[in-house]
Write a protein that binds this DNA or RNA. Sequence first.
DNA 1: TTGTATGCGTTATCAT
DNA 2: ATGATAACGCATACAA
Lengths: 350, 350
Amino acid sequence: MADPEFQPDPAVVKRSAPTVEDVARAAGVSTATVSRCLNMPAKVGEATRTRVLKVVAELGYSPNFGARALAAKRTRTIGAIVPTMENAIFARGLQAFQEELGLHGYTLLVASSSYSPEREADQIRTLVARGADALLLIGFDRAPAITEWLEARAVPHVIAWAYDADAKALSVGFDNREAMRALASEVFARGHRRVAVLTAPIAQNDRARERLAGVRAAAAEAGLDPDTLRVVETPYSFDNGAAQMDLLMGDTPRPTAVICGNDILAAGAIAAARAKGLRVPGDVSVTGFDDIEIARVLDPLLTTVHVPHRDMGRACARDLIDILENGTHPASTELRTEVMLRGSLGPPAD
Amino acid sequence: MADPEFQPDPAVVKRSAPTVEDVARAAGVSTATVSRCLNMPAKVGEATRTRVLKVVAELGYSPNFGARALAAKRTRTIGAIVPTMENAIFARGLQAFQEELGLHGYTLLVASSSYSPEREADQIRTLVARGADALLLIGFDRAPAITEWLEARAVPHVIAWAYDADAKALSVGFDNREAMRALASEVFARGHRRVAVLTAPIAQNDRARERLAGVRAAAAEAGLDPDTLRVVETPYSFDNGAAQMDLLMGDTPRPTAVICGNDILAAGAIAAARAKGLRVPGDVSVTGFDDIEIARVLDPLLTTVHVPHRDMGRACARDLIDILENGTHPASTELRTEVMLRGSLGPPAD
DNA sequence: TTGTATGCGTTATCAT
DNA sequence: ATGATAACGCATACAA
């Protein structure tokens, strides 16, 4: 097939991507100058810079990622590990996080843990091995070993969705306990005494645990024994919410209010109540947490806690970039939440 | 502060991460063998392999990402560019995509275009520059220049959310036109004649355009002049859906059915109809597209088109990995959609 | 301001 | 099966 006599045109045979060297040669400068033009343009003479950049554009030069990472020891890539992107709250937070990163020339590496600490630890190591310069993590609950690993490797990281001023790690979030306490207080204030809590498994989830603690605190304030609260744990999903609600509504006597750990569980709960012929809030009140779109679409509208997911994502990005570029040590940020009183919460039936 | 006499313990002063060389020395083999143990364990003797891997574990060695990328010319990282992660359909697809990638040792790099072709082109270049071995893109609509660029650089990529057997590019998706035609046929079959379409801007969005074409096709089949359809374009969001629905419901005569380009617009439309005191479907029918969670929560339940988002994400991952690892040329995959007839669609009021 | 020279940690080719 | 060694392409300390 190939003609042995054939002499390829050098201008055409050049298959591989251009390198600094190609640019340097074409621009009549050294590779160092080319590199400088791209990374510290201020330190290069006006004339040479424009000349070099022109050549860069002409050749369609783009620095080799591996070489750059190897030499510079950084990738301008930041990792995020969330329980799942399917939950709108994490998707929303990630979106804002990514947008802010993009504004500063950083790229987002994503992994999900499916709420498993072991998988999260794996993902942490994987993303760092993949060159992540810093990480966004959700919540504080994780094995000490992986936290120590992060510290030992000096991997900048921020904890989102939770706030703890005393923690060693940087966090950007809100006080899950207090937010839920404020909401639960409204429930008890309306006279509810038989109250159930539908929560995600609290074992390795500090946010869920804190929220439950918030309900207990509100119960105590209302003069109730927190141990009389009916607590049901189930993974976050519409169907689980519905299934557990179905069981709860079979109890005698029936709870007059069900406080859910998030809006998705609450949506499932309301659907299940309806399916059983119960009115909300006439027969049973239901509350959520997060204030995602679904809360404004449910019938009745869902009483819930509004969380500034986008602000959280943005703030995380800013902190991480600040650490990376300026070596600072930002203080943790506490974001404000707000109880949204809507139709799904009413007085008890009896 | 520092004691000038202090002699640091060499075992402690070793700050930087261990390299192949460290492992090789400790295991009494060459760096080549260490590399082989990690990358092609089959080509190494049983005994040496276990010995080397033991040392790897002891030292906590992890190959340097930049060096590996530079030498191997690949990163085992795959990029995805979606319009936005806030839309549950993309979040769900991405989640499945990422899970499948993870199963095969690949990591996901994410960017969003905000439905802007220019931003998407930027992101494509950025992700490739960041070392993405392959890309997942949404839909076919993009400037020829960037498509050519992808071809020229031989960047493996898959188009999701759309299917075109004749296109040069690999695609994994469904026939948006036919799916919407099937749904719209149900609407016309119920006798609706004054029908409005609430769609995303169709300018640079082939999915939206195809869906609109599907409605037109169904109208024609029903003996209607497609040009009598009232078409309203608005960016995908609950509030936009509500606002445009509010305007539509002010028309005289009022449309008896509103076909929406996705479930979020439909949710907004139903809320707006309600707010205006109109019953759905009594006064006006509403349909969506996607069949996300919200469709099962709305009152009435939303008639929509079910799309296998997770299957799509998974299939995209498999194809890309197949290309990368085996150099194959997978054929495009057409996925099945299904019309979900639910309460929001009824006969016309008059 | 610009150039020179070296190191970065792997992978892969080619011997052995 | 294993070892020696040459790329890989860039950033940067140091010189000029």
